[in-house]
Design a protein around this nucleic acid. Structure first.
Lengths: 152, 152
DNA sequence: CACACATATTTGCCTTGACAAATATATTTT
DNA sequence: AAAATATATTTGTCAAGGCAAATATGTGTG
């Protein structure tokens, strides 16, 4: 199976590569968990549902920004998720350009199932870190993100 | 204006999302640095050159695995980089199926320029972390990666 | 009001990368 | 050695996402 000579030599990976590797594995694990429940959802779609479930209805642009997705790509994801009945595009009351994306009851129910997957994967991923270390990891990542976004 | 309620509330991002955000920013920053030098290279291509520069000639499959890229995608990247004169596909001496990908002198020269970019971006990204914290961040990420790859 | 400009969404086009099939060559089994 | 199997590379096909243009609507300025 895995005779990859690099499997244990990632010690000198640069941060950019290492982040990519970890993220790829998390996405893989999440999609595997979702598939194991007989559901068909990509990680991106999972994120969209999660946002809507946690933050409530919002515009497509706002939603796109919040999952760091291109606006055009968002339109197509919404097409899919809407056609499968998980969300609705309602007209925005004040702004006729904008939409108000909201979960349907089905979308809500779906999220109930997904929230387990999410927690299970994150727990497994961080199982070798204690509570303090988890906090630190999160904290460091946020500081790195902030540093990158405010380069001056 | 920016009335995005998420701009400063990434504190509750899940690990998967946060990793994605950080990685995206690093890739963006790297590509910006490269473009600022008048060079045209994507992050993936940068990684390929880096591997070859650091580890020397190797097969396409090995190279693909080492940057976590699909074999088919690797073929096409090699096409591009070879046609631009940065690397060569030599026949493997013992195995006639395999290739021996090696940097040309031009590829080597290119890497000399890129190594700056790499260091500058990583330094900027981690500028708010001290040496110990950087080590910890790296260590945590590797432990998470390991946990994900050995899920049992 | 008329105009310029900004924003929300959609659509078209293009590149990237995943997956699977094809091809060529090695390795192992019988 | 022939057959089965494994590996390296290439190619075809497809979905995802970035970018730019198109459209519709909102906002500000003279």
């Amino acid at each position: 199976m895995n005779n990859d000579p690099l499997a244990h030599s990632s010690s000198r990976e640069s941060l950019g590569v290492l982040l990519g590797l970890v993220r790829t594995e998390i996405v893989r694990a999440m999609e595997a968990e979702i598939a194991a429940k007989g559901l068909e959802l990509r990680f991106t779609q999972f994120l969209i549902l999660k946002r809507l479930a946690k933050l409530g209805p919002m515009g497509a642009t706002e939603l796109a920004r919040s999952v760091e997705l291109d606006g055009g790509a968002m339109t197509r994801q919404l097409d899919q998720l809407e056609s499968r009945g998980y969300l609705r595009r309602c007209p925005h009351e004040q702004d006729r350009r904008a939409l108000r994306i909201e979960l349907t009851a089905e979308g809500d129910a779906l999220w109930q199932q997904l929230t387990n997957c999410n927690e299970r994967v994150l727990k497994a991923a961080q199982r070798s870190l204690n509570a303090t270390e988890r906090k630190h990891l999160h904290d460091y990542l946020e500081r790195v993100l902030h540093a990158l976004r405010n380069k001056n």
